[in-house]
Design a protein around this nucleic acid. Sequence first.
DNA 1: TCTGAAATTTTTGTGAT
DNA 2: ATCACAAAAATTTCAGA
Lengths: 191, 191
Amino acid sequence: MTEAFPGTPGESGRGTSYPVPVPKNPRDDKPLDPTDLTLVRLLEQDGRMSNAMLAREVGIAESTCLVRVRSLRERGVVRGIHADIDPVAVGRPVEAMIAVRFGGHRRSHFEQFTQEVPELPGVIGAYHVSGAIDYFVHVATESADALRDFVLDHLTNRPGVLHAETALIFESLRGRGTLTRDAVDPSRPSA
Amino acid sequence: MTEAFPGTPGESGRGTSYPVPVPKNPRDDKPLDPTDLTLVRLLEQDGRMSNAMLAREVGIAESTCLVRVRSLRERGVVRGIHADIDPVAVGRPVEAMIAVRFGGHRRSHFEQFTQEVPELPGVIGAYHVSGAIDYFVHVATESADALRDFVLDHLTNRPGVLHAETALIFESLRGRGTLTRDAVDPSRPSA
DNA sequence: TCTGAAATTTTTGTGAT
DNA sequence: ATCACAAAAATTTCAGA
């Protein structure tokens, strides 16, 4: 019951040029004590909260808090801290979720796509999934024309891709820190 | 062509107890100069980069940088800054993308769902889209059982919902700051 | 592993260009 | 709008419990 979990599924945040991430031990899974969970929740809600305030909120010394937060990053619990940008404000008002189907299902096709899709212009996220669809690609483009071009140039026109179906996004919503609430440790209320 | 979408797409970060967000002027859209775009890109890659380093990177005084970053937040260009958490590490190793279809398409159903879905346990994001599907819900759960319960309790069993189709996520990928690269201002190369 | 206090760095306001 | 400078506040380190 203290067993914890199998493997690490997704990698993501890559720092630019300084001392941060590089999960030193991806398989290092101790179940996180309540203090860590609280820190995680706070940083999920406001990734720029100062170390001093974090320490106050969870009731530990600042230096201790610093160590714990650093440990969370090193262990890959906190993969990265990123600004959430309004696509409209940066000239990409047309958002879409594109369902991509591959044919043949050769491993090399998936591996190449997995490697390249995060770098494609306007890509916010991508999800390799089970079922009839192989990938969902979340993208923001400058216009409907640019969206069509994106699909044709980077998806349809790709070795292995059979079909891409585009759904315009009317509204994007973010979860509100519910990752760290409920279940996780059934013996505590919610703190 | 500059039409964009109906409303403001996503709200998100809720600060805990200090001076931040509350976009004072959501429709205040001046096209962002190259310096702002660079700041946005840097913060997208590392939301915790210090103001001093941001200033150095873009080549302006620290105090100026502070003003610009604050302005970006006030204008809603930067909607929030959030830690990206590994769901596995917080006891939610089963990730899924759930396609939800509504029947009847009553506005009240969508409005209620839009309001409630970000608070549902384990929800990372949700997307109201055009086409055959009405919503994609991105969720992380503690187990396959918990996923089934989530779908039954919060989606299928909801007024207006016709159908929910679940795709397990094998791997989640994040875009790499490509929102602020390429086109945006067609008259400049790329900065 | 945690702490408290010292050393260092960053944030933030002011006044001038 | 921008900058340089200085005071205030924060981060980070470290010796010791």
